[in-house]
Design a protein around this nucleic acid. Structure first.
Lengths: 247, 247
DNA sequence: CGTGGGGTTGATTCTTATCAATTCGGGTGG
DNA sequence: CCACCCGAATTGATAAGAATCAACCCCACG
């Protein structure tokens, strides 16, 4: 089996020894395919699993009383989906896949295994959760303090950064309605505002593709500060006794 | 020493055995007093500690480029402050105290102690973090999908619930400007909107006091659903081998 | 007494939602 | 192969909600 996605993800921050890799690989023993739009878990269902996303994109959402939907997280390959619900009786959010994807359902009890067997991996999971929170917080700031254009700009730069995408062009498999539901905007206004960003020669979003024309300008316009994404966990580095040299 | 605040908080969910209590009590060895408005930690400072709040209220905030401030969390007695920053190099938010308070700074490395010594406490911390996230998510929904009146109503009901306040009247040591910064509203609009809620005989907020006149009406108006606050962690109950009967 | 912070209220402006009409492109069935 | 349909995107017109600006009150505090 190729090196598991989550190992690769965690290896961004720290090198893992073989035991740790083995523990993590055990998370991905049963990859399952999902096709675009498929729901992995509904809100209200018992939260028996979380999932590592090996390929494809996903999102977590909540349905609101008036039929609206709030998108809470966007999941990229290598991320853990549904970690936050694991401790609680019932899932608070629905997890759906945006593209055809491969994800590995992971029974929740094994997380306590990890707590018991590897404090270092525990710290990594803790870190992953903290990272998730940082993104949520940035979204709160984005939604409550920036106008539509800045919000979209910020969102696009965040996606580029989280994808570790060097090129100025990349896929964004979300339609304007989902983007709106993530940023608290109507799809109509998303359309209008993307046009503005195009007209200002900052970024062009079309046909599920993003083409950044002026990254510097866009970043400045969005007041984007990448700090919240970097998470060189001190914990993990410090605990890094058995590691091989970084890749 | 009286039973520590954090033990009391965690005991809501699970009974702790003596070892666990001892580990947790160690978190609160050095209570420090802070006076209203005092800053415990600035964003950008190294995140060397987190804090358990023994008495008083606190909040986490971020300063924005234009001089605005976003309030991220409201902390109540028994909560852990700054947990989310612990794994990262620099604190992402400023922690300030709203009232005269007692808090216990807790050096971050000891969290890894807990990871090593007690998987069960680890799960509790994990749970606390997940709880924090749930509240953030509810805030995102609140800010992006509800209008000012609903937002304020929701916020007030949340506070009542989180305080485990049975009475229909309680202290709320926040001025309208801070409330606004938490909910993405201008202080002027907070004032106006609170008047509306008063006029509708739902709730009256005056002089740092909340008086709920119609809890049922307010809850319905806010579309408040308490699910996200309950967090009877399955983890912890399951791992509950050494416990004494619940208090 | 003056001063300043917090709160209230009114008038105006700005941003975004909502409603409606149109286009475009990709499928589908005849 | 063509007519049709549907979802997504665009664009315009209007309306709602909240920010902003400004004036004023109240009260605690020096």
């Amino acid at each position: 089996m190729e090196k598991s996605c989550i190992v690769e993800q965690f290896n961004r921050y720290v090198s893992l020894n073989e035991d740790e890799c083995a523990l993590l690989d055990a998370l991905e023993r049963e990859p399952k395919e999902f096709s675009a739009g498929e729901v992995l878990r509904m809100e209200g269902d018992p939260a028996l699993h979380f999932y590592t996303l090996r390929s494809g994109w996903g999102y977590a959402s909540r349905a609101l009383a008036d039929g609206e939907r709030q998108v809470l997280d966007i999941f990229l390959p290598g991320q853990i989906m549904g970690l936050r619900d694991v401790g609680s009786e019932l899932a608070l959010s629905t997890i759906t896949v945006l593209t055809d994807s491969v994800a590995c359902p992971f029974p929740e009890p094994r997380l306590t295994d990890i707590f018991e067997k590897s404090p270092r991996l525990t710290a990594l999971f803790f870190s992953a959760m903290a990272q998730e929170e940082s993104i949520l917080i940035e979204r709160i700031i984005n939604i409550s303090r920036r106008d539509a254009a800045e919000r979209l700009a910020h969102f696009i730069v965040e996606m580029k950064m989280r994808l570790h995408e060097d090129a100025d062009e990349f896929e964004l498999p979300m339609n304007q309605s989902i983007i709106g539901d993530a940023l608290g905007l109507s799809s109509v206004h998303v359309s209008r505002t993307l046009k503005c960003l195009r007209d200002q020669n900052l970024v062009c979003v079309e046909d599920n593709r993003v083409r950044i024309m002026d990254l510097e300008g866009l970043t400045a316009f969005a007041q984007f500060n990448a700090k919240y994404l970097g998470r060189e966990s001190r914990w993990v580095r410090r605990a890094d006794k058995h590691s091989r040299p970084a890749a």
